[in-house]
Amino acid sequence: MRILFFAQTKDAAETSELEIKISGSASFDEIWEKLVAVKPKLTEFRKATRLARNGEYADAKTKFTDADEVALIPPVSGG
């Protein structure tokens, strides 16, 4: 699974992209657990950061598979 980081989460992860392996499908929370395990600095962003699956916002019910592109979307500030 390809994970993309943006803005503050990119700084915390110290990379813009990460590849993690999951088997079968994973929940929203399971993805976070995996991420925080590899990049502990992401913990503080967990509350305010949304996840996107293949370019669309995910929610607590979303199932993720290994083929998905997942992006961490911290609070946005465009415009």
Partner: peptide, 14 residues
């Protein structure tokens, strides 16, 4: 549109 952009569109002032 501007209100919603500032909530949901993944663009950031870095």
């Amino acid at each position: 549109f501007m209100n919603r952009l500032k909530q949901d569109v993944p663009i950031w002032k870095r």
